[in-house]
Structures are given as C-alpha cells and as structure tokens.
Simulated assay, not measured.
Amino acid sequence: MANKLAVITGASTGIGKEIAKIAVREGYDLIVVADEAQIDAAAGELKGNGANVTSVQADLSSFEGNDQLLAAVGGRPIDVLVANAGLGLGEGFLVQDVADWRRVIDTNVVGTTYLLQKVLRQMVERDSGNVLITGSIAGLIPGAWQAVYNGTKAYLDSLAYALREEIKDTNVNVTVLMPGPTETEFFRRAGMLDTPVGESDKADPAKVAQDGWDAMTGRKPHVVSGFVNKLQAALSHITPDTINAKMHTGMAKPNDEGESRGGL
C-alpha cells in the first residue's frame, strides 16, 4: 500500500519546513510547495532522510499557482494538507505599495481559500483527511503597523473554525495553528527587523511545528503555541481593541518612527 500523502505549502523555510520534517518521520510521502527556488533545496534535504518528496515552485497567490500544485498531486488522495504559505508586511498602511499589500491578501486569503475549498471537497467526498491552517495570534489583535497582515490572519483564524463547523459530521478535521513571533524568515521578508518584535527573542519553529502537528493529529480545533502566547491570546479577548492596537504599536512600529517600546 502506498504511503499516505501530505501536501505542505510554504515549506521552503520556517514552520512549514519543520512540519515537513515531522511528516517525513511519520512516514508520509510529501509534496512541498513555495514560491521560491529554495523549495527544491528543502526537498533535497527531506529526501536525504529517505522520504518520497516532490517539490513544486508555484505562485500560491494565484489560482493558476494553486492549480499547478494540484496538478502535481495527480489525483492522488491528500491525507494531510498544511496550508502554511503566507506573507507578512510591516510599516504603516499609508506608505505600503498597493502591489505589496495586495500580494499579502492574495497569498494569505485568496490563494489559501481556493486551495482549501479544492482539497476539502475531495476529503469530504471520501470522508477522510486532516487539514492544518497556519493562522496566528496576530489575528486576535488589531495590528497597528502590520494592519493588512493581522487582518489576513484574523480571516484565517475565523475561517478555520467556520469550516470545522460546516464539516463536523464528517471524518475530516480542520485545525488552526496560532503561533506568536517565531524565529523564521518572516520578519526579514516583512521588512520588520527594525521593530521591537523583530529584534526580540522568538519561538523555535521546530517546537511550533510539533505543537501544530500534534493538535492536528489529535483533531483539536486550534493550538496556541507557547505559554506566553497562550497568555497573550487570553488577554486579547478581555482587553479593549483600542488598547490592543496601541499595544501592538509597541511591538511593530519601526524604531526609527519614534518611541515604540512596551508591547503585547
């Protein structure tokens, strides 16, 4: 019998790559996807552990890129989908280029939603499957100086729970992973290295990945990775959003924009 298949997006670095390593240890064949050539090197590392790994370089902000990924699956049943691909974007909203914030929305929201619908239809039809969506505790907080990104994560956090409810009478599971700041390429790519959160100590992506995998295989609705993040998530529900937004300024406002200390 063929191994089960896991499809992991955003797997060239960071949390996605660490989840791919777990899937290899658990005996899955992999299709790993990212929008950069580095995905081939990541696949090579995973193959070194004896895994059957296919890499796909595709623009997951577009329907065409997601269709390219699905074509690589070749009709094979997807047992696990990790919808992890995502982009960040720092600085004030008014100075961001339209093309930049649109790509964040198209990747995090539009492309992810399209892929989820395509794969979940197949999983529900055969009444089997596991989905892990990488949301964020950022989705619980109005993201001053990171407004578009936090908005997309709020969407994903909400979408995961909505989909879970809609398919609750099936054997298909949807879990949302809500990490906090994690030691990945995110902050460099988002232009946030000169912010308090960009300069702070961050979570180990391997630990975050394991928390997400364990929650998904345990069929839990969500997991917030890390004790401090769990506390922050809990506080976000009882703190007025005006205060949350101000506290987020203390994390995400660039240091050269004036005083930006404190934070959530």
Rank of each mutant, 00 (worst) to 15 (best):
G250Y: 09
D35N: 14
L140S: 01
T112I: 05
R103P: 02
L159S: 07
M251W: 10
G90W: 07
I137Y: 00
N173C: 01
V109M: 07
K253D: 11
A58C: 07
G263I: 05
L60F: 11
T113N: 02
E257Q: 12
G250T: 13
K253R: 13
V73N: 11
D67K: 15
L159M: 14
V82H: 01
G258F: 11
E166C: 07
D79I: 01
V148W: 10
V176C: 03
I15A: 01
G151V: 00
M123W: 09
M123Q: 14
T112G: 03
M251Q: 14
G65W: 07
Q38R: 15
G111T: 03
N49V: 10
G129N: 00
K246L: 14
F93E: 07
I31P: 04
N3H: 15
K4S: 15
D241I: 05
R261S: 15
M216E: 08
A203F: 08
N255D: 11
I15F: 08
P77M: 00
N66E: 13
L159Y: 10
A252W: 12
A85Y: 03
T9F: 05
K21I: 05
K230C: 03
I31T: 09
E91V: 06
G226D: 04
D67R: 11
V73R: 10
I19K: 04
A23V: 07
A206V: 09
P221F: 02
K17H: 14
G262K: 12
Y161P: 03
A83D: 08
N173I: 04
D157E: 06
G139H: 00
D100H: 02
S62K: 13
Q210K: 15
E125R: 11
I141S: 02
L140V: 00
S225A: 13
V124C: 01
E45C: 08
A85K: 00
D157I: 00
N108D: 03
A190H: 06
A160S: 10
Q38M: 09
P142S: 14
M192K: 03
N108M: 01
G48W: 12
M216S: 02
L156N: 03
D127E: 09
E91M: 09
V56E: 05
A160E: 03
N130V: 06
G151Y: 08
M123D: 06
S55W: 13
T175R: 02
F187K: 02
T152Y: 06
I137D: 00
G48Q: 11
L87M: 10
D214M: 07
I137K: 01
